[in-house]
Each structure stands twice: as structure tokens, then as C-alpha cells.
């Protein structure tokens, strides 16, 4: 352990701003990308489902028209 207390750890020898700015933005960006990619994956599935449902409705309608 390189630090004697939690306060010591958070202070980072006077470089707290720069160290925590670095790690904060890093994890912020990485989590953001993960969340965005996961949400995108779900949205694509929803869109495909909606499209399939619409095509089926159109088909049913066309058959009734005949």
C-alpha cells in the first residue's frame, strides 16, 4: 500500500485533480460507450420486430382485400 490513509489516497500527493480527472473521464467514457452500444442493440431488435409486425399486418390486409 502506497498510502497511509484514505484521505492520503484521495489527495494523490497533491495531484488529486489530474489523477481523478483522468480516471473519471476514462470510466465515464467507457461506461457511456457500453451503455450506448447495449441500448443500440436493443433498439435494433425492437425496430426489426416492429417492421416484421407491420409487414404481417399489410399481408393480412391484402389477403382480406382479395
Amino acid at each position: 500500500m502506497a498510502f497511509t490513509s484514505w484521505a492520503d489516497f484521495w489527495a494523490m500527493g497533491g495531484y488529486a485533480l489530474f489523477v481523478w480527472l483522468s480516471f473519471g473521464t476514462t470510466y465515464g467514457l467507457l461506461l457511456g460507450l457500453w451503455w450506448y452500444s447495449k441500448r443500440q442493440h436493443q433498439q435494433i431488435q425492437q425496430q426489426i420486430r416492429a417492421k416484421a409486425a407491420r409487414e404481417q399486418r399489410v399481408r393480412q390486409h391484402q389477403e382480406r382485400e382479395k
Binding site: M1, A2, F3, F9, M12, G13, G14, Y15, F18, V19, S22, F23, T26
Partner: peptide, 25 residues
Amino acid sequence: GNIWGLAFSPPDYQQGDSYRIIYIH
């Protein structure tokens, strides 16, 4: 890797604790 580097690695003799940015940079 990050927690090891942030809390357990020794500080740099020239750069002190600022060098810990290396573990992500």
C-alpha cells in the same frame, strides 16, 4: 490493474503520484 496501480504501486521518484495516470494513458 488500475487499483493496483492507483493504490499499491510506489510513487514515482520524480513525478510523485501524478504518474499514476500512466495506468490508463
